[in-house]
Design a protein around this nucleic acid. Structure first.
Lengths: 176, 176
DNA sequence: GTCTATAATCAGATAGAC
DNA sequence: GTCTATCTGATTATAGAC
């Protein structure tokens, strides 16, 4: 899905990778929509858990940022949005999860900005989470097209903002 | 393409809309890649011209912003990026045009910020163009998913920034 | 659970008549 | 330029044997 897009995920190819016959895909999932839904739910729950761990760190803003600019995670997110766009059966479910991700981010952002003494009256926390998400997603999309104009400047801008608010990034702990 | 995605654009459906037989699509364009390329080039050139007109207005920043938050234009852009992502033959060409769009935007942004007396040392103009692009694209993507959380706040934030820098938006002139 | 067999569509693309 | 006819291959999905 990450390499060739969701359209390349067919029952034949899935079966091939699993070393089974294509018909078994339908035995387990009936339709391809059901398969996508199952994969999506699993990844989304894992993602929510991973995000919760990240936001629980001493530097939640840096953690959120690192999450966003991870290319493979964001490429997957983009593909999932593509699926949602073209398979109505999945749209609602995917939209719901996307809102859960954003809610958690915004809660953590609100708490962090409050803790750092940043005035939330000028710029609501949800605006910061939206901006962080947007920047990373578009950057990944553009990288896929071979574009890089402005990326260095944008990275510097964002990481400068993070430094001013949350200080120098601490070394990342190894994940458990 | 806007309604059902680029994958729904097949020789049969194109022919149907044109009131012709599918084989004629191949007569005129040989492959579907050639067709996509022809469509893309035409729209891109039209888009560059329209963008140039917009950036030439007395309020280039507002014009650029209005361009970005136009849902159907941005949905088309997103679909084109989807095509680029999954048809290698088109990727290079699309990437090149995307860079031309950004270059023109950044030139206009640089001139405008200079004119308005905004210090470009803190935040390079290309960062502003990147942010504007990102925000509008992700907003349109999320709208397609039925999401709206934070959109009003982000709009207010962006338009507040535009007001402070470029003043209240003047009424839009009718296009010629 | 896993297989073979198969149905029903739909896709891109080409050959050749007119 | 436009048509008919056709090839080739992919897809989702079901039925039924083992």
């Amino acid at each position: 899905m990450i390499d060739e897009g969701y359209a390349a995920v067919t029952s034949r190819r899935v079966a091939e990778r699993a070393g089974l016959k294509p018909q078994l895909v339908h035995y387990y999932f009936r339709t391809m929509d059901d398969l996508f839904l199952a994969v999506f739910r699993r990844r989304a729950e894992e993602g929510l858990a991973a995000q919760a761990r990240a936001l629980d760190s001493p530097q939640p803003l840096w953690a959120l940022w690192r999450f966003g600019i991870d290319p493979s995670a964001t490429r997957l997110t983009m593909e999932i949005m593509g699926v949602a766009n073209h398979r109505k059966a999945l749209r609602t479910e995917i939209g719901r999860y996307a809102e859960r991700f954003r809610d958690e981010q915004t809660k953590a952002m609100t708490a962090a900005l409050d803790r750092y003494g940043v005035n939330a009256a000028d710029v609501p926390p949800i605006v910061w989470t939206f901006l962080a998400t947007s920047v990373s997603r578009v950057m990944v999309m553009e990288q896929a097209l071979g574009m890089s104009a402005g990326h260095a400047e944008v990275l510097e801008f964002c990481e400068g903002w993070l430094r001013r608010i949350e200080g120098e990034p601490l070394p990342i702990e190894a994940a458990g």
